[in-house]
Nucleic acid binder design. Structure first.
Lengths: 129, 129
DNA sequence: TAACTGTATTATTTATGTTAGTACAATAAG
DNA sequence: CTTATTGTACTAACATAAATAATACAGTTA
């Protein structure tokens, strides 16, 4: 499914959260699609099932998946306009990145072009549906 | 100078790195300006000098400050076009944020408007010089 | 019933962050 | 030269978090 960097200073469960979140955001994992079972994924990645469960618990807490005992864990369909807190955090992050780009000497117009280019790429990516 | 969240899961030295980096990027700390001495800042924040030194070491490694034994630690002037690796990382981060905004239902045009608004704010901030 | 799901619990090991205390060389000012 | 500052280095001790290991239990499905 994906790979992990065991040497990284970032905890394994955090890496898992980021990777899976990324797959969900990029629509590689579709809404209501079932995720690998805790034990299965643990076996594939040769890490402890508890670590997977910790990642799944975190993903559920952040609203990206939902788990049903006895059935499995599934991708939670996104409901637009629901996550204003997260959106506000993203806008703040965006501000930090822009500030640092300016600091590194990138002209404002080039930053806008970067964004437009990224948006164009994502639109193209929607053809995955 | 600033405040720290000792209850946060983020290590104190990492918080320090982020805060100081932010002050440098936003030009609150000017190029070649001297930073507080390791022991002084440790005393102000009532934390161990070793923790401050660890943060300073990290900041120096990332290219934001330079330290001279016997003299002090200073803000390193940014040289545009020098940090392509960091710029590439920022562009990647930017992509992630844009992807998540789209995922949350933000229209592309609104994202561009956000960026333009942020850029306008930063231009205004340049009046600090 | 049997084989799967998620979930919970306890104990142990390992890694990292933080503090504490001490020490040394370079710099600047008296 | 002396003194007080600076950054830097080192070891030891402690606290916390991450990760593993080994079970166990309840809900679901065939």
């Amino acid at each position: 499914m994906f790979e992990l960097n065991l040497r990284s200073r970032a905890p394994v469960y955090e890496q898992l959260v980021e990777k899976i979140k990324e797959l969900i955001i990029n629509n590689v994992l579709k809404p209501d699609q079932q995720l690998p079972a805790v034990r299965v994924l643990a076996s594939e990645l040769t890490i402890n099932p508890n670590t997977i469960q910790k990642a799944y618990r975190e993903l559920e807490h952040r609203g990206y998946i939902y788990s049903v005992p006895g059935k499995g864990s599934f991708v939670k369909p996104a409901v637009p306009g629901t996550n204003n807190a997260r959106l506000q955090a993203l806008e703040k992050e965006l501000g930090k990145i822009i500030s640092e780009m300016l600091y590194l000497g990138v002209p404002p117009q080039e930053i806008i072009n970067m964004v437009k280019k990224q948006l164009a790429n994502k639109e193209g990516g929607k053809l995955d549906d």
